[in-house]
C-alpha cells in the first residue's frame, strides 16, 4: 500500500510536469489551426472550432525557401563535419602520439567556449574569399565551428569499441584506412548516427551565425526566417505559430523516432568518457 501511494505521487508529479512542459507546443498547434479572428476572441487553450489551414499555407509560403536553404546547409555541413570529425576522432581514440593530450584539450576547449568569439573574424575570413553572405560561406563557417564537436563525440563512441576487429583486419593485411572504412565504421555505425544527429541539430538550430553571415533574404536559413516572422508586426499569431512548428519539424521527428541516438549523442557530448 505504501509503495503504491509513493508511485501515485511519482506519477502525479510527472504527469503534471509533462502537461505543463508540453503546453507551449499544444497552444502553438491549436493557435496555428485557428483563424486570425479566432485567435483573438477565444481562450488560447480552447481547440479551434473547425480546422483552418490558412495560417499553415501562409507560413509555408513565407518560410519554405528558408527551410530548403537550411536543409542544404545543414545536410552538407553535417556530412563534412562528421567525415572530418570521425577520421580525427578515430585516430584520437586509437593511436597514442606526441601531443595527443594537448590536442584533445585544445579541441575540447574549442568545442565548449562560446563560439561567438569566432563571429567577427568569420565575417572577415568569408569576405576575403568572396563567400560572405552566401550559403557555401555559411557551410564553411559551420564546418569550422562544429567539426571539433564531431571529433569529440565520435571519439567517445570509438573508444567503446573493442580493438579485436581492427587487429584481425590488420592481420589480414588491411591498411588503417581500409580497417577504418570496412571494419570500424560499420561497427561504430550507431555512434556515427548519434554524432550525425547531434551535429545536424546544432547546425539546424544555430542562430547567431545564420543571422549575421547572411544578409540577402534569398539565402536566409530557417531560424533567422522565424525570428524575422516574429519581428514583422503584420504577421499574426496563427501564422507565426505555424511557421515555428514547420521550423522544428526535423529536430522533432529525430527526437521522436531516433530519440535513443539523440540521447546517446547528448551524453557523449558531455565527454563523460567512453560512450556506453
Amino acid at each position: 500500500m505504501r509503495l503504491s501511494i509513493k508511485m501515485a505521487i511519482a506519477y502525479l508529479v510527472l504527469v503534471l510536469m509533462s502537461i505543463f512542459w508540453l503546453l507551449p507546443f499544444y497552444i502553438a498547434l491549436v493557435t496555428s489551426l485557428k483563424t486570425h479572428r479566432e485567435t483573438y476572441v477565444t481562450n488560447v487553450l480552447q481547440p479551434p472550432s473547425h480546422i483552418y489551414l490558412g495560417a499553415w499555407i501562409e507560413a509555408w509560403n513565407r518560410v519554405s525557401r528558408a527551410f530548403f536553404n537550411s536543409i542544404v546547409v545543414s545536410i552538407s555541413s553535417t556530412l563534412l563535419c562528421v567525415l572530418i570529425g570521425s577520421l580525427g576522432g578515430y585516430y584520437l581514440a586509437r593511436f597514442r602520439f606526441r601531443g595527443a593530450n594537448a590536442l584533445f584539450f585544445m579541441i575540447a576547449v574549442g568545442a565548449f567556449i562560446p563560439y561567438y568569439v569566432l563571429l567577427i573574424p568569420m565575417t572577415r575570413l568569408l569576405a576575403s574569399i568572396g563567400l560572405f553572405g552566401t550559403l557555401p560561406g555559411l557551410i564553411i563557417a559551420y564546418v569550422i565551428l562544429f567539426s571539433p564537436w564531431a571529433a569529440l563525440i565520435s571519439s567517445a563512441f570509438f573508444l567503446a569499441i573493442p580493438r579485436d576487429f581492427e587487429e584481425a583486419a590488420y592481420v589480414d593485411g588491411a591498411s588503417p584506412l581500409q580497417a577504418f572504412f570496412r571494419v570500424v565504421l560499420p561497427i561504430a555505425l550507431p555512434g556515427i548516427v548519434s554524432t550525425t544527429i547531434i551535429v545536424f541539430m546544432n547546425i539546424w538550430n544555430e542562430f547567431l551565425f545564420a543571422v549575421s553571415l547572411i544578409t540577402d533574404p534569398t539565402y536566409r536559413t530557417i531560424q533567422p526566417e522565424i525570428a524575422n516572422l516574429r519581428g514583422t508586426t503584420t504577421v499574426a499569431w496563427n501564422t507565426l505559430m505555424a511557421g515555428s512548428l514547420i521550423g522544428v519539424l526535423p529536430p522533432t521527428i529525430i527526437c521522436l523516432f531516433l530519440g535513443r541516438y539523440f540521447i546517446r549523442g547528448l551524453l557523449a557530448g558531455t565527454l563523460r568518457g567512453a560512450a556506453r
Binding site: 509533462s18 503546453l23 507551449p24 497552444i27 539546424w204 531560424q223 505559430m241 522544428v248
Partner: peptide, 30 residues
C-alpha cells in the same frame, strides 16, 4: 515516454522556444 516529453524542448531551437513562449507570456497567452 517521459524522457521523450522532456527532451522535446531540448531538441528544438532557442529561436522557436523563444517564439512559443512569447505567445505563452502574452496578455491573453497560456
Amino acid at each position: 515516454i517521459f524522457r521523450t516529453i522532456f527532451l522535446l524542448p531540448t531538441a528544438i531551437s532557442m529561436v522557436v522556444a523563444g517564439t512559443l513562449w512569447v505567445w505563452m507570456y502574452a496578455t491573453n497567452g497560456g
